[in-house]
Design a protein around this nucleic acid. Structure first.
Lengths: 339, 339
DNA sequence: TAGATTTGTGTAATCGATTACATGAATAAT
DNA sequence: ATTATTCATGTAATCGATTACACAAATCTA
């Protein structure tokens, strides 16, 4: 029960050759029906399992794809991975996961390891601190499809799947405008990141499109945590004309915002409306549920997988696909004002 | 830049043999220093990457481990995976992820695929609906280390890492007792699962140890969602002697409990204390933060990885390790009563 | 200086599956 | 009856790296 059974073992038992066994198992047409059946039965009896490594070495296809994210245990990324795995598993691909911990060095190491492991493709979200792109080029030089999701590095030959952050920012802000809020502030994340810039642009455009005045002091760039939200509120409420609504690029910041507003006696959403971004799981479990923008993460993962598959299918053609998914504004308690 | 460089290419360029190149690259002692350096330089110049598939086929070690969970995007599992990956990546292992979607069939398929892929080990949490174990036996027959985490299937030869659910249940209940609660109810999950039975036993033991009366009508078996918590509260409050504290085996249920209690005018934690289980992320973001039992998931993942590594190291000896981690009671708002 | 030992390198087998090519037997065509 | 064709199967190369074994040259020993 212990040693591994190969086609040679089957061949020996049947006094035939490994080639015949291989052909029989692969339903090759020029093999006699009797032999085919015999081989199948014997294979099952001997508990034969095809060695995918040998196959991979021979064919050059490992049927493994690498997925690289900053951290697996962030709900955003784990949902994307779920989408990827759901899509690729039924097609015979296995998904190799690695985390960069947001460092460029680990990203580089990981890509090297995956290339050594002969993966058939790499789907990834770029680390926040990645400044170079030679490791990405190396992937392309090896003719391995590379697909970025969410965070991308702009370069030729790479497909990407992102959400339309501009639209997300626009929709969220527009929703606040429709509620009658005239003074809408925005708390952004690190503006050196594309995603935050785009959300900000969406916010700004919505303000201007509505004929409201765009006020630069209403725009705060901050870290992505609860404290940052609290600090921001303290700052904003001290302005000559304090805002009466906030669109935050982060749910965590928005949570801090709501906490501080309550602390300072505001009634959310009657006096002050808040919309976050990301649809973190906790937002729907809060006592006052939070309005936010859903990034359809599972969809994003599935789409990334599909783009990869398409690239595999047409490996001759260089495809450079840019997919932009529409985010979904989710209106909940923190902005459900009765008009 | 396109074709892959092998040791044969290097050998040809240097007019030597592949064996020499291989030895040089592996720092084999009986190779001249000059040749070693020459090979290293040439390899770097030609951008040589070792083909791990060939190595894996030759050595029988793929350096891949399979990790199987019901769903990746549950925070509980993604944290465990994070722990596993953090531990195994630096040691050169890659982690292949698969989801069972809680079905036995996918679990069986996945195990077969992983065995075909020649993984060096399988770390998994058993699907809720798994009733047979022949697929696990197949893993052991192949001499592949198998480690269960959280949910295990009791069988010989398999190591497991679980948390001490009994202690978790005991600690949570005991904490409520210390707060002076005399009528403590328990909402359990599906009692056919070991983990829920153990939490229940911990609860019961704590009650009895404290000399309180164990009341079977205070024990409710329910689904793991918010509604179930609400329903349970309605039931419990209609009892002749309603409880004044609840230990729930699920944070989601506990959330429903707290919502319903507030709705019915109770002041948590002054009138009624609640403790959940799992330390789901949302529990610390609630307005009234929730007391719960942390399952040290990252630790569990790391421990599972270490058990695997130990098994690899002593592959001759059959180890059957049962690791039980201590859960951590986290006291927050929902049971922070001033005494 | 002859023999023993060390050192560095090459040859070829191996891991397991696939497949181009060859071959012998059976069958069809003329 | 003889040649042509089809069919089923075997032989051997291949994928890329490792390694036991062999062997020549260099060095050491007595």
């Amino acid at each position: 029960m212990n040693e591994k059974v190969t086609i040679y073992d089957i061949a020996k038992k049947l006094k035939t050759s490994a080639a015949t066994v291989s052909r029989a198992l692969n339903n090759n047409p020029n093999i006699s029906e009797s032999m085919r059946q015999l081989v199948f039965e014997t294979a099952k009896k001997m508990n034969y399992k095809q060695n995918k490594l040998a196959l991979a070495l021979k064919s050059g296809k490992s049927n493994n794809v690498g997925v690289i994210v900053p951290y697996i245990d962030r709900s955003f990324f784990s949902s994307i991975i779920r989408g990827i795995e759901d899509e690729l598993y039924p097609r015979g691909y296995r998904v190799i996961i690695s985390q960069t911990h947001e460092t460029e060095q680990k990203e580089i190491d990981t890509i090297n390891m995956l290339l050594n492991a002969q993966v058939d493709g790499i789907l990834m979200s770029v680390s926040k601190f990645t400044a170079t792109n030679s490791h990405f080029k190396r992937v392309l030089d090896n003719n391995i499809p590379l697909v970025f999701f969410d965070r991308r590095y702009k370069m030729k030959g790479v497909s990407s799947v992102v959400i339309d952050d501009f639209q997300g920012g626009f929709d969220a802000t527009n929703h606040l405008i429709k509620l009658g809020c005239k003074h809408i502030a925005h708390i952004s994340g690190d503006m050196s990141l594309e995603i935050y810039r785009n959300r900000y642009e969406g916010y700004k455009t919505a303000i201007e499109d509505a004929g409201l005045e765009f006020n630069p002091t209403y725009v705060i760039e901050s870290k992505n945590d609860i404290e940052a939200g609290q600090t921001a509120v303290d700052f904003l409420l001290n302005l000559e004309t304090p805002p009466n609504a906030i669109f935050s690029s982060s749910d965590y910041v928005a949570l801090g915002v709501i906490q501080k507003l309550k602390e300072r006696g505001f009634n959310v959403p009657q006096d002050f409306c808040v919309v976050g971004f990301s649809n973190e799981p906790f937002t729907k479990f809060m006592e006052l549920t939070m309005s936010t923008v859903d990034q359809c993460t599972v969809e994003m993962g599935k789409m990334a997988a599909l783009v990869f598959l398409e690239q595999v299918k047409n490996s001759k053609i260089k495809i450079e696909k840019k997919v932009q998914l529409s985010p979904q504004l989710i209106i909940r308690g923190s902005s459900s004002k009765k008009l």
